[in-house]
Simulated scan of single mutants.
Amino acid sequence: PKHDYAYHTEAMDRAQEGGIDDVGLGVLFGLEGYRYEFAGLLMHAEHLEAVHGVGPHTISVPRVKKADDIDPEAFDNGISDEIFEKIIALIRVAVPYTGMIISTREGKNVREKALELGISQISGGSRTSVGGYVEEEPEDDNSAQFDVSDRRTLDEVLNWLITLGYVPSFCTACYREGRTGDRFMSLCKSKQILNCCHPNALMTLKEYLEDYASEDTKKKGLAMIESELKKIPNEKVRQLAARHLAEISEGKRDFRF
Rank of each mutant, 00 (worst) to 15 (best):
N109Q: 09
A67E: 05
I102K: 04
V110M: 10
G124V: 05
L117S: 10
I70P: 07
I101N: 02
V64W: 04
I87F: 05
Q121S: 13
L117T: 10
T98E: 10
F75E: 04
Q121L: 11
A67Y: 00
T104V: 07
T58F: 09
I87L: 13
K86R: 15
F84W: 11
E112W: 09
F84N: 07
N109G: 01
I79W: 00
D76A: 12
I119Q: 01
E85K: 12
I101S: 00
P62W: 03
D68R: 13
I88N: 08
S126G: 13
K113F: 03
L117H: 10
D69C: 01
V61G: 04
T58L: 12
A74G: 11
G107V: 03
R105Y: 03
A67F: 00
F84A: 06
V93E: 12
D76F: 15
D71H: 05
G124T: 04
V64I: 13
S126N: 10
A94C: 15
V93L: 02
T104Y: 00
R127K: 13
K65W: 08
D69E: 10
I83H: 11
D69N: 12
I87C: 14
K113L: 08
A67L: 01
R127N: 14
L90W: 11
I59L: 11
I87K: 10
Y97N: 10
I59D: 12
E73K: 14
R105F: 02
D71M: 00
K113C: 00
I122N: 04
K108F: 05
D69F: 05
D68M: 07
I122H: 00
Y97F: 15
S126W: 01
G99P: 01
A89W: 04
D69T: 11
S123M: 06
K65C: 08
K86T: 15
R92W: 06
N77K: 02
H57P: 09
